[in-house]
Each structure stands twice: as structure tokens, then as C-alpha cells.
Amino acid sequence: MVKNITLLLSLLFAIQFSYAQSGADTIHYRKIYYFAGTGLALPIGKTKEVLSPKLFAGSMGLDIALKNPKYYLYPALYMFNFSYDQQLEDPKYDHYIENGNASVYMLSLAGGTRKQLKRLNTYVYGGPSFGLVSEPRAQELESIVKIDYDRSFAVGAKVGVGADYKFKSFFLGGEIGYMRHFTKLQGRPFHAVTILFGLKSDITRLGEKVVEIIAPSAIN
């Protein structure tokens, strides 16, 4: 299944990249947009032996148009919550965790291409990601069970495809993505499909104000 998802996303990247070579993008020219999304993160493959989905996943990121607005940078923070079943013994703790709560926080530094069709935009993106994985642990202290969290650093990649539609003052959109960690979770690879819906709003003037405060000579 993971190979099929990777192949499908690679095909969509190729199609979108070929479309991005022609046509004009008037919506994103010299613009910075803020995107906030919510939805689900669905573990796949052997990841499902450890994690199962919980409501809700969330994301927040910036859509920063490059000199050619068909291409953009997409730094984004992803926050995922999962139900957690411990598979490997931790010698520092007395018990295994079943139906616990685990969290994944990943910062993705992606780039992508898009195609404008009047008010409708389609896009693809991909790039490296890194962040923290928080796993629960249980220790029995007399009549009390103490819950701790084991936090580890994770490195991975995030790719996705999506579309949004521009209304008068905001965009409404959704995207489907795939995240993989190159580090393992409980001896299993981490793979998840993300489904997110949300709003995108123009913060270009806010960005210009920040630049003016930090480095006023840069805009003169």
C-alpha cells in the first residue's frame, strides 16, 4: 500500500509540474498566505500495530510565493494525536501501555508547484520534515500508576496534493498527504496518510509590516 501511495503521488507531481510550465498565476503573485487545517492522520502498514487514528489532526503553515508564483515554499507545522499500543518492553518501566495517547509534532520545510484555473487552484508539494514523537509509559508506585512520556526526535518527509477555491477574502481548501519517518516507532516504520481541510487567508501586509519593523532599510 505504501508503494502504491508513493507511486500515485509521484505521478501527480509529474502531471502538476508539467502544467505549471504554462499559464499565468494572478492570485498568488507576491503574496503570502496562512493556511490552518484540521482533519485526520491515518496510520498505514505496520504502523497500525502501534498507532490508530484519533480526532483531530491539525496543521498551520505559510504559502510563500516565489518570484514565479507557480512555485512556492510551504513551511508547515503538523500536530497529530493517536491511540497507542506499546509493542516493545521498556526496561525503565513496569508495564506496557494499551490504548494510550501518543502525539507527533513535525515541522515540514516543503516546496511545490500549483496551477490556477480562474478561482480554483490545484497544487502539489514535498520536502523534509523533523520534530518530536511523544510516547506514553506507565510506572506503578505503590497504589498509584504514574504516566510518563518518552520523547524522541524524528526525521522524515512529507508530500501532498490539494486544491483550494478563492472566495472574496479567503480560500477554502483541502489536501491529501503522506508522511514517513526515517526513524522507527516501537520497531516499526512510521507511515501515515493525512486528510486536512481548512482556510487560507492573505497575510502579505502583515509580513510587510514585520519586515518594516525588523529591517526598515530593506524595503526602501
Results as ranks from 00 to 15, higher is better:
Lys48Arg: 15
Leu62Gln: 11
Leu73Tyr: 14
Tyr72Lys: 03
Glu142Asp: 12
Gln116Tyr: 02
Tyr149Gln: 14
Lys48Gln: 15
Lys3Phe: 11
Ile27Glu: 14
Leu66Ala: 15
Gly174Val: 03
Lys70Phe: 04
Tyr29His: 14
His191Leu: 03
Ala215Gly: 00
Gly174Cys: 03
Lys166Ile: 05
Phe170Arg: 10
Phe197Thr: 06
Phe182Pro: 04
Lys146Asp: 10
Leu62Met: 14
Tyr19Glu: 10
Tyr74Leu: 08
Arg30Gln: 15
Tyr33Val: 00
Lys70His: 15
Ala41Asn: 11
Thr204Arg: 04
Leu206Tyr: 13
Arg119Cys: 04
Ser52Arg: 13
Lys48Thr: 15
Tyr105Leu: 08
Thr38Asn: 00
Asn220Ala: 07
Phe35Cys: 00
Val124Glu: 01
Ala41Trp: 00
Tyr33Asn: 09
Ile64Val: 14
Ser22Asp: 13
Gly37Pro: 03
Met179Thr: 14
Leu66Tyr: 12
Leu117Trp: 09
Pro216Lys: 00
Gln186His: 05
Ser217Pro: 00
Val210Gln: 04
Arg188Val: 03
Gly45Gln: 06
Ser10Asn: 12
Glu208Thr: 02
Ile5Pro: 08
Met1Glu: 10
Asp202Cys: 13
Leu62Val: 10
Asn101Pro: 02
Leu185Thr: 08
His28Ala: 13
Gln86Glu: 15
Ser108Asn: 11
Gln87Cys: 03
Leu199Asp: 01
Ile32Cys: 09
Asp202Lys: 13
Glu142Val: 07
Gly187Asn: 10
Ser169Asn: 14
Gly198His: 06
Glu140Lys: 14
Phe167Val: 07
Glu98Arg: 15
Gly177Ser: 13
Ile195Cys: 11
Gly111Arg: 04
Ser134Phe: 01
Arg180Asn: 11
Ile214Gly: 01
Leu88Tyr: 12
Asp94Lys: 09
Asp25Lys: 03
Leu185Gln: 02
Leu88Gly: 03
Lys118Phe: 05
Val193Phe: 02
Lys158Gln: 11
Tyr123Ile: 05
Gly162Leu: 04
Arg205Thr: 09
Gly126Arg: 04
Leu66Thr: 15
Gly111Lys: 04
Phe197Leu: 08
Phe167Arg: 07
